[in-house]
C-alpha cells in the first residue's frame, strides 16, 4: 500500500506549524492537522485552523492567505505526496461545536 512521504515527516510538519502559529500568534490560536485520503482518493493533509473571533470575523481572507503561504513556504507538499486543505473556525464556533479534531491537543 502506498503511503505518502508526509507520514514519515511529521516532526517537520509540526515544526512548520509551530513557526506559523508563532508568527501569526495575534490571529491564529492553534493549527491541527491530519493526513488521509480526500474525496477523490488522493492523499491529502487537512489543516484545521482555529482563529481568534476577531480574525475570523474581520479579516478571514487576509489571515487565511498568510496561513496558506506560511505553511507552503515551509513545507514541500508535492514532495510529500499530499494536497493541502485548510479550513478555519473561530474560538467561539469551536466552543459551540466542541469537536475533538479541532480541540487543543
Amino acid at each position: 500500500m502506498y503511503v505518502p512521504p508526509a507520514v514519515t515527516r511529521q516532526s517537520e510538519i509540526q515544526a512548520a506549524i509551530d513557526e506559523v502559529e508563532r508568527s501569526l500568534a495575534s490571529d491564529v490560536v492553534r493549527i491541527r492537522y491530519e493526513i488521509g485520503e480526500d474525496w477523490s482518493g488522493q492523499w491529502a493533509i487537512f489543516f484545521r485552523v482555529v482563529l481568534t473571533d476577531d480574525a475570523a470575523k474581520q479579516r478571514l481572507r487576509e489571515v487565511a492567505n498568510k496561513v496558506v503561504w506560511g505553511l507552503s513556504r515551509r513545507l514541500d507538499f508535492p514532495g510529500m505526496g499530499v494536497f493541502p486543505y485548510h479550513n478555519y473556525r473561530s474560538v467561539s464556533e469551536q466552543a459551540a461545536l466542541q469537536e475533538e479534531a479541532w480541540a487543543d491537543a
Partner: peptide, 8 residues
C-alpha cells in the same frame, strides 16, 4: 458547516 466555512 459554520459561518466561517461559508465566508471562507
Amino acid at each position: 458547516i459554520i459561518q466561517t466555512d461559508v465566508t471562507d
